[in-house]
Design a protein around this nucleic acid. Structure first.
Lengths: 134, 134
DNA sequence: TTGTAATGTAATAATTTTTATTACATATTT
DNA sequence: AAATATGTAATAAAAATTATTACATTACAA
């Protein structure tokens, strides 16, 4: 996985900290990455119904619902990679009895792990996460 | 995370399937990646005490202990990334109250998740994983 | 004791992925 | 109508991953 989860959490925390509309430039300034990347992630969070946006002058972004109704799991799901345990790029040798089957078995293992993770992340809300900041 | 876990699992499964010494070239052929990459991962697994190697002609690799004593968690630990949830490359803006603290809080979250994952992966042994193959 | 086949590892190149940048259309407020 | 923001496409730059080449070292076996 890349830095997308961190970025999404950072965005959501900033929106949680101030209910007013926040611009992508301001968010990018706190995260310290390119504004276009932030807008791309905002666009994804929007698609997943986690935030609202307002076009035009004085526009910006805000949480789509109260922070105590947003689980960390829902944020994770919005940015989740194909495989949490990672996957090799190459097709294993189909002539090898192990190679032929291993990807399926690894996929099953990965699904098991993800279930446990999402379960754990579902225990915490954005509001609880935000409480840790002083 | 990259493909290292997949590769390590593939190596370990192949060694589990045949107790005789296996060469890195043979392993690379089944995985279908460059033999040098395989040797690098073998060198890492060796360092973690999961496998044995034998130098010289007719040399190769074998499991360091019975497959039923090797947990998937121990294989994961040998290749585990810094942060399972990923991390952004940039330092957040220290002038921002959220930016200043978020990395610490994300690190805590990550540690929680990893604990749950390793717990789950500790339930299964290589022998059990191998049983799934026909 | 010499040839062969294997591990072990360093250096470098190629490829892929991620991140940054530029540009501009569209929307909304003042 | 001007200003400021979202939204998005196209491209460039940087970083990470994977592949390749090269070769030293070890051990078996003829």
């Amino acid at each position: 996985m890349n830095g997308r989860f961190s970025i999404a959490m950072h965005i959501m925390t900033l929106l949680c900290a101030d209910a007013r509309l926040q611009s992508s430039d301001y968010l990018a300034g706190s995260i310290n990455i390119n504004p276009v990347l932030v807008r791309k992630e905002l666009s994804n969070l929007l698609k997943h119904g986690l935030i609202n946006s307002q076009l035009g002058k004085n526009g910006g972004y805000s949480l789509a619902k109260p922070a105590k109704e947003i689980t960390i799991a829902s944020i994770y799901k919005a940015v989740k990679p194909n495989a949490i345990l990672g996957q090799a790029k190459n097709e294993p040798n189909p002539a090898c009895p192990i190679g032929k089957q291993i990807n399926n078995h690894l996929k099953t293992l990965d699904a098991d792990i993800e279930r446990v993770m999402v379960n754990k992340l579902g225990d915490t809300t954005l509001a609880e996460f935000y409480k840790k900041f002083d």
